[in-house]
Design a protein around this nucleic acid. Sequence first.
DNA 1: ACCCCTCGTGCAAACCTTTGCAAGACGGCG
DNA 2: CGCCGTCTTGCAAAGGTTTGCACGAGGGGT
Lengths: 356, 356
Amino acid sequence: MAPKGVRVSGVTIHEVATRAGVSASTVSRAFTNPQLVRADTRDRVLQLARDLGYTPNRAARGLITGRTGNIGVVVPDLANPFFSAVLKGANARAREADQIVFLADTDEDPGVEEDLVRAMAKQVDGIVLCSSRMSGHQLHELMPSIPLVLLNRREDDRPAVLFDNVAGVRRLLAHLGALGHRRVAYLGGPRTSWSDRERRRGMRLAARREAVDLVELGPFEPTYEGGLRAADPAAATGATAVVAFNDLMALGVLNRLAARGVAVPGEVSVAGFDGIPTAGMGALPLTTVALPMVQAGRAAIDLLLERLADPDPDAGRLQRVLDVDLLVRSTTATPLAPPPTPPPNPPTADVQGGRP
Amino acid sequence: MAPKGVRVSGVTIHEVATRAGVSASTVSRAFTNPQLVRADTRDRVLQLARDLGYTPNRAARGLITGRTGNIGVVVPDLANPFFSAVLKGANARAREADQIVFLADTDEDPGVEEDLVRAMAKQVDGIVLCSSRMSGHQLHELMPSIPLVLLNRREDDRPAVLFDNVAGVRRLLAHLGALGHRRVAYLGGPRTSWSDRERRRGMRLAARREAVDLVELGPFEPTYEGGLRAADPAAATGATAVVAFNDLMALGVLNRLAARGVAVPGEVSVAGFDGIPTAGMGALPLTTVALPMVQAGRAAIDLLLERLADPDPDAGRLQRVLDVDLLVRSTTATPLAPPPTPPPNPPTADVQGGRP
DNA sequence: ACCCCTCGTGCAAACCTTTGCAAGACGGCG
DNA sequence: CGCCGTCTTGCAAAGGTTTGCACGAGGGGT
């Protein structure tokens, strides 16, 4: 009946209690409610615990308190530096609060995402869902079973950390408009992405305001490879400026255009979203709408902790909208010539990029 | 006495048991030892469990089995795509084995690393330590308390997933030698890094073999910024080829050299290690020694699972050495001219880059 | 000198699951 | 017809912790 697994650090609260000549309750209180136990007893117990290397077994504690001390973080793709950065922030903040992060990568699949959330639910106090690809319906089904905080996704008035996408797009188009661009292509990301919808919406608004023609393409995969594939259709539109759903795609566009001999930013300007470090490392630093990724990760954990401390579902407005920052760098400029005549390469190459 | 925390999915094994008209033991067995319970009982129980949305509470299970079903993964810096890739592999493999990944980021600090491992130890079955920066002493102290698998770090014959750094360096230097380089600079990474020591060792060996002069610099921070700072001292050595500790640094070098007007690969060739995606995305795809990062992450989890299944400490040789791959791309070529005379910029600028 | 209040501590139940042991049912064999 | 073995199930203990309740001691007020 004894556990078969290797007992990792066998020192329990009882051991500390016996050695200190007190009961287990006292040791427990010394840790969780220090003011309940007499000062000298407490000090003796804590000192002894330290000497013995005792740390409370969080699983056992969780069993009774109903709190695990764990927080789940779910991302669509760890390989995207945007999510690494968010994760880094979340992880740092969680550690400060003495919480541990459970990680899950969904590979951009809403089904996997739902499964993972369900699987995690029992073992964490709450979950931060980054750029969730799930449907509103799926989301609402999950909501009651576990405290959820969304990041980069709005769903009604559920707790969320958001970026001011529309403002970002407005600034970006103002910049392009001022440079003299009159025809702009937007390369869309996954249909399931909230930020893609927001950016599309913002683009339409801002395009009208700046009096530029807007051409929408996509969806494309939100990756470098997706950008490579998106570049040709984009060039074929005759737009003098191309805005990609994210930096990774924009980098792909940059590379493909260079391979075709299209001058950036001379003939075509390119911009992205996110502000991932990679975007600034190339020979041509990318103009981009930078999002405070690390800060967003931290904010999401903050929100979750607040929510857990006060489970009252409608305690305070729990949406945080973070400001974004237009980084004007080397890939945007005044277009040299009138829209170039159809480029040498066959411009009809696969117009549809990403998964449908 | 009832738990105060929000009960997340209150359905317990007892509820299923009562409804199915059996005892809790039977339900438990239906899940963990199906062959012990009569077929029709089992089916009825499992079906009911599914309907009720019951999933076993892993914390409670862990309490008695001594296995948590969790695996810890510790990395020095999430922002480095090398570690994102490793993590992605580890996470995928863990999920297949129905294990969950606990994440920790140490910010390159060995002290934090030790703390985190200790804090995790109680809540995971084992830990994968990626590129551990801890001393051999620290490592040995930790070993007995928790099953550990090292990744990109050898320590005696402890279980580890390693890359064949020396072979990689040999191939890289053979490549540079064949191109005609006679003086090569190595820009070192953190002193605490095992792979840096290995690469240094390999460089010395290979340099003798190829009859090239080797200049060792560093340590530098293993980041893009570290590379920016390393470029000037590297140029000052008069080497025609620069090998950086990792790709991130190499990208920094590339950028700084471009800013100074040094032609790559004309005047100076540059190469890195890791094969992170970013390295191939720039206008000048980087020549690099590519490591199978995702595969390494998977292998580490495999090793850990094997080890857990058979806790016999000396069961089989538990070190896996993975092959590396020299990717020859655009940043290495035959040097144009004899080593250029001292470059226009003051070549004395901070020779020490990273932290001491 | 008595009573009451406060403070510090211990007891035991509860959280949810796994598992050794034992008991009941049933069939076969001698 | 009795004995034994196999199969299926339940009982109860155990795992480490938290916490409501109760108990005892000590102090201050009357």
